[in-house]
């Protein structure tokens, strides 16, 4: 595996190093700007380190300062409450990830193991939905949520995603098909019903794939923008991505409030950074498919 001649390796490592710097530098610049007082923005704009580092940008977007203090620190004075948006984002992705994973596990198990007429047909129809691009169902779903008066409620925000996605059903079914039958048969003979086998035997055995699906769904929901923008724009349901978009447009003068915006951006990166630190190995290895088979 390591057969590259010693000298040839240096430029190769150099390219990787450059890629790494290009990947990480924008995040450094984001944090650096967030720690810069707005008054220094102009004078500091080319400096690698803030001359007078401050936490005031975080404090003001989290609503920890008074309106006057916020305005003095470069804010527009508009109501801004990133603590709430952060919480909304966590609730949004948490609800979707847990419920979707659970319901799709139930469905995947039924398709993999339970015997009933029409099984392949129902499964086939569900999988066909993978072919429909999200934008196509998004318009009618918006009309539906609006007619239910669910706009700007968490119910409307999460409803289309919590019950199922075709992909998660497909993924979990494939996994359940691959686990040995014998254990389940034995549990059946011990007097367990379908639910008992699923709850006591199958779910605990499937922690890996369940976490993988839960994790990717969390990331997907965390990044989600268009649907929350349409359905959850108001304060009560506004998530971080929508809040950042609104914040950018609320700029007081011609120049956006960059120090505040970068503080808000940092808040949207921190949770995924934590995810990467604690679950990075699993996340990276979930891309490590055992061959496209």
């Amino acid at each position: 595996m390591r057969r590259i001649a010693k000298i040839g390796r240096l430029p190769a490592w150099a390219i990787l190093a450059v890629a790494l710097v290009l990947t990480l530098f924008p995040f450094y610049w984001m944090v650096r700007t967030a720690l810069t007082p707005a008054a220094d923005l102009y004078s500091d704009s080319g400096a690698l380190f803030p001359q007078n580092p401050t936490m005031v940008n975080f404090q003001r977007i989290l609503g920890l300062t008074t309106q006057e203090e916020a305005r003095a620190a470069g804010g527009s004075g508009a109501q801004i409450d990133f603590a709430r948006y952060l919480l909304n984002s966590v609730v949004y992705s948490g609800l979707i990830a847990t419920l979707q994973t659970f319901f799709c596990a139930m469905a995947g198990y039924a398709f993999a193991r339970l015997r009933f007429p029409g099984r392949e047909l129902v499964f086939g129809i569900m999988i066909a939905a993978l072919m429909v691009p999200p934008i196509f169902t998004l318009l009618p779903n918006f009309v539906l949520v609006k007619s239910l008066d669910w706009v700007n409620t968490f119910a409307g925000m999460v409803a289309p995603s919590i019950l199922m996605t075709p992909f998660a059903v497909f993924f979990l079914r494939q996994f359940f098909l691959s686990i040995p039958r014998d254990v389940e048969e034995a549990a059946r003979l011990d007097g367990n019903g379908a639910w008992g086998v699923f709850w006591r035997i199958v779910l605990p055995m499937s922690r890996g794939p369940l976490i993988t699906i839960g994790l990717t769904t969390t990331v997907w929901a965390w990044k989600d923008y268009l649907w929350p923008l349409l359905v959850g724009r108001e304060e009560e349901t506004r998530v971080l991505t929508v809040a950042l978009g609104v914040f950018l447009q609320q700029s007081p003068n011609t120049r956006p409030d960059w120090t505040g915006l970068m503080a808000g951006s940092t808040l949207s990166v921190l949770p995924v950074l934590l995810l990467l630190v604690f679950l990075g190995r699993r996340l990276v290895q979930s891309l490590n498919f055992s061959g496209i088979k």
Binding site: L114, F116, V122, M126, A129, T137, L144, P160, L163, M164
Partner: peptide, 30 residues
Amino acid sequence: PRDDRRAAWIFLIPAIAGFVIFYGYPTVRG
């Protein structure tokens, strides 16, 4: 052969509801 019909439909209620309401129906509506 075992027939899990009843259990199966219970397992499938959330997914089928989600599919019909938020995938199937909107596709037709669209």
